[in-house]
């Protein structure tokens, strides 16, 4: 496991909802992240179509945005979502995993600004787009394993 993968795994480990959705970090850059949620019928919004509920996409985008910020901080500082805007471009395809890409494109001492997309295979053919702001330096942060 690379240090990036190890860092990514640590960021999601012990987050019950992320684990419940089967979320996994695919890629981490400096201020960017890609994460995935595998398709699961029990997370659909309608059993007839099997399409995943928007809430699953919201969770994935929110979490991926947070990871993009953590990757830029390179620390487990406490962050809190201030607001999240999601545009739904098209319905997700039933049976297919959903990926999210998020980029923290601006960071001040107190606020981080993130944008991103949710997609199946092509980032340029998104299911949804997100724009979000996060507060930095809030309580509830975690220390990396082994840190004092």
């Amino acid at each position: 496991m690379s240090s990036t993968e190890a860092f990514g795994a640590q960021l999601l480990a012990g987050i019950p909802h992320a684990e419940g959705l089967g979320m996994a970090v695919v890629e981490i850059g400096n201020g960017t992240a890609v994460a995935r949620v595998p398709y699961a019928a029990h997370l659909s919004g309608d059993p007839e179509t099997g399409v995943l509920h928007g809430g699953v996409i919201t969770s994935l985008l929110d979490n991926t945005a947070g990871i993009a910020i953590q990757s830029r901080l390179r620390a487990f500082g406490g962050i809190a979502t201030l607001d999240l805007r999601i545009d739904y471009m098209r319905p997700a395809t039933a049976g297919e995993d959903i990926y999210a890409f998020a980029e923290c494109y601006r960071m001040t001492k107190t606020v981080a600004f993130v944008r991103g997309v949710a997609y199946h295979t092509d980032r340029n053919d998104p299911i949804a787009a997100v724009s979000a702001a996060f507060m930095l330096g809030t309580g509830g942060g975690r220390k990396p394993d082994g840190a004092p």
């Binding site: 809430g55 699953v56 919201t58 969770s59 979490n63 999240l84 509830g140």
Partner: peptide, 24 residues
Amino acid sequence: GQHLIGNPVLPALHGGVVGGFLET
């Protein structure tokens, strides 16, 4: 339920859970 937690330190509900609940 425990599966709704997004921050186990506080603990707090996951932002996506709150969003999905509001959307519903």
